[in-house]
Amino acid sequence: MSSLTAESSDSGSVAETARVPHGDAGPSPSLAVVEAIADLAGVDSTDLPEEGVILNEHVDLDALNALVAGRADADVDVSLTVAGYAVRVGPETAVARRSEN
């Protein structure tokens, strides 16, 4: 399950952020990224390719999962940009953000 929030900046733009927890009984880190971006895009995660977002064109999914999964005791933070979305993947959550003017 994800959470979607909106924040205003001093420049007047609205930044939206979606957080999706991963690990334990939840999705893999890469799937959490897909779900977070889908939330921001307002589509089902299976429809992201139609929106021009194909995660494995931006990052090796197996490498991302291996780097982040099961590392709750480590200080792991992976940042990447995917089709206009800034994404951060930590040991417990994936966070996607986009700005709209």
Rank of each mutant, 00 (worst) to 15 (best):
P49I: 01
I54R: 10
L67A: 15
S11T: 15
V59S: 03
A41W: 01
E51Y: 02
D10F: 12
L40D: 00
L4W: 04
A36Q: 05
N101R: 12
A69D: 15
A38C: 06
G23Q: 08
L67R: 12
T17P: 03
T81G: 11
R88S: 13
A36V: 08
A86N: 14
A63T: 13
G52R: 05
E100H: 10
A15W: 10
D77F: 11
P27N: 09
P91W: 12
V87M: 01
V53P: 00
S45I: 02
R19E: 11
E50H: 02
M1Y: 12
S28E: 15
V68N: 04
R88P: 00
S99G: 07
H58Q: 02
A41K: 11
D60H: 08
D47R: 08
S28C: 09
S9C: 08
P91T: 15
M1S: 15
L67W: 07
E50D: 12
T81Q: 13
A6Y: 06
G26M: 11
H58W: 08
E16V: 00
M1A: 15
G42F: 08
L64G: 04
E51K: 06
R88L: 04
I37A: 02
A15G: 06
M1R: 14
S79W: 07
L61T: 11
G90N: 09
E35N: 07
T5C: 04
E100Q: 11
A6G: 06
S30H: 12
T81E: 15
V78Y: 11
A32R: 05
T81Y: 05
A83S: 09
L80S: 03
H22P: 03
D10S: 12
P91L: 07
G52M: 05
V53D: 01
S45H: 12
D75E: 15
V95N: 05
T5G: 01
L40R: 00
V33M: 05
A32C: 08
A74Q: 12
V14P: 01
A72T: 14
A86V: 11
L40I: 00
A66L: 13
E16M: 04
R98W: 03
G84Q: 00
A25L: 14
D10W: 13
A69V: 06
A38W: 04
L67V: 06
V68S: 06
S9G: 15
L40C: 00
V53A: 02
A15I: 14
G90H: 07
V89G: 05
S9Y: 11
S28L: 15
A32P: 04
G23A: 12
V53L: 02
S3C: 06
R88K: 07
H58E: 04
I37S: 01
V78I: 15
V82Y: 02
L64R: 07
V87H: 02
V20C: 11
R71N: 14
D62H: 06
S30M: 08
D44L: 07
